[in-house]
């Protein structure tokens, strides 16, 4: 299968990718739950072909302020992963993490460590996700150093639209929500697995369906 045949992925292939996300996200939820000592639930995963022109307003207003942790994996199979939370969730998460791990610290100190905490948790979530897939397909998926941004949702999703846009007009978006539920306001983060178009056929053949 050539990468420009992305549009021709069957619903069976998408089901298999959805199941892969299920396994990855399950492992990520477990890791997050152990880290926080809190229950973490996940939504039924999705794997869909989406028009690249609709990506930026698929979830919320493109101007909504969010926090996103990004990393890239590059092995036999390559691609990108994102963990996106809206900004209220990320600040709530920082407070929970700081209290658990740092005791009582001042607001100034908290601001200094906020991003490194989020980056580290994001790294754990995304790496656990990939580890599960990696063992399932028996293929190592080395990751880059993660990166974090706080910006408009549309500006972050822009990159994905452009990325898949290089080879066509559709993107494959496989995703789920992880919810940290033990708190008054559950904290909801969105996890996205975005395989490179060139890697899809390798992924599907490793999964035994191509």
């Amino acid at each position: 299968m050539e990468y420009n045949e992305l549009e021709g992925l069957s619903s069976f292939h998408l089901d298999v990718i959805r199941e892969t996300v299920n396994i990855g996200a399950g492992n990520a939820a477990t890791a997050l739950s152990q880290l926080l000592g809190s229950a973490v639930t996940m939504d039924v995963p999705k794997a869909e072909l989406v028009s690249i022109y609709n990506i930026s307003d698929r979830y919320a207003s493109p101007t909504e302020l969010v926090c996103a942790v990004y990393l890239r994996f590059e092995g036999e199979i390559s691609g990108n992963m994102l963990w996106i939370m809206n900004e209220e969730v990320s600040s709530q998460l920082v407070k929970v993490l700081a209290k658990k791990n740092l005791g009582n610290i001042s607001v100034e100190q908290l601001n200094e460590v906020a991003d490194s905490l989020l980056l580290e948790v994001g790294n754990i979530v995304l790496s656990s996700f990939l580890n599960a897939i990696s063992s399932m397909i028996n293929c190592s998926l080395p990751v880059t150093v993660p990166a974090i941004v706080h910006d408009m949702l549309g500006a972050i999703l822009d990159l994905l639209a452009a990325y898949y846009g290089m080879v066509g007009d559709v993107a494959i978006v496989s995703e789920t929500n992880l919810r940290i539920t033990d708190y008054e306001t559950p904290m909801n983060g969105h996890v996205m697995l975005l395989p490179d178009p060139q890697s899809l056929s390798i992924l599907l053949s490793k999964l035994g369906v191509l």
Partner: peptide
């Protein structure tokens, strides 16, 4: 007229 584009990243 007002022309707008929202949430431009790399675009």
């Amino acid at each position: 007229v007002i022309l707008t584009s929202l949430g431009l990243g790399s675009c």
